[in-house]
């Protein structure tokens, strides 16, 4: 049982904590020891949120070392860039394309990196980068709030874990009245990964 380390990066309010909870629980259900660590604090007020998730035979530290993360899930492009120092050349990054400009940008004090620059930075670390339009997909399904589950769906296609495990964990974690929406979001995400590769 090999270790797998993940990093989930996003903005407070995007549902990244739920997504990393799901990821850790899927690991547990798939027979791994699993740990995760979030930095919360003021995250509800639109700050950066970074979660480490680790699967392994046994996991000691809930926090990974720089240069050792196998998978980066970027829920927002700028936040994905903040995680690059945790990656290594064989890492895989899955990044949602929809930017959420921070106040430093909307107030004109800073400039949001251009799309080309952003891709260039990620590709300088690893060739395995997938860009997905998860927010757009979620809005199409009826709510931007399921962007996180679209992302999880897309990501699930990259891992060797039975789809039933993902489904079971997701449905146990979302309100029952939104089961159908979340299920749709998950499978839409899985579809999304086809042809999303940029090389």
């Amino acid at each position: 049982m090999n270790k797998i380390d993940f990093l989930v990066a996003g903005v407070g309010g995007q549902g990244t904590i739920l997504a990393s909870d799901i990821l850790a629980e899927v690991g547990m259900e798939a027979g791994y020891d699993a740990k995760k660590s979030d930095v919360l604090g003021l995250a509800v007020r639109g700050g950066s949120v970074l979660s480490h998730v680790r699967w392994g035979r046994t996991v000691a530290s809930p926090v990974s070392r720089k240069g050792t993360i196998d998978y980066l899930l970027g829920f927002e492009p700028l936040e994905a860039l903040r995680g690059t120092e945790f990656l290594h050349p064989q890492s895989t990054a899955l990044v949602n394309t929809q930017p959420i400009p921070p106040v430093s940008v909307s107030s004109g004090d800073a400039i949001y990196p251009a799309k080309e620059r952003l891709e260039q930075i990620l590709h300088a670390v690893t060739a395995n980068v997938y860009f997905v339009e998860a927010t757009e997909e979620a809005i199409g399904l009826g709510s931007s709030k399921v962007t996180n589950v679209v992302m999880i769906g897309a990501f699930s296609a990259l891992l060797d874990v039975p789809v039933e495990v993902w489904e079971k964990v997701i449905l146990s974690r979302v309100p029952e009245k939104y089961s159908q929406l979340n299920k749709a979001a998950f499978f839409a995400g899985r579809e999304l990964i086809q042809g999303a590769r940029i090389s």
Partner: peptide, 12 residues
């Protein structure tokens, strides 16, 4: 580890 090559806009 490769740090991001430029200062990224903060998200306070």
């Amino acid at each position: 580890a490769v740090p991001p090559p430029e200062t990224l806009p903060p998200r306070s």
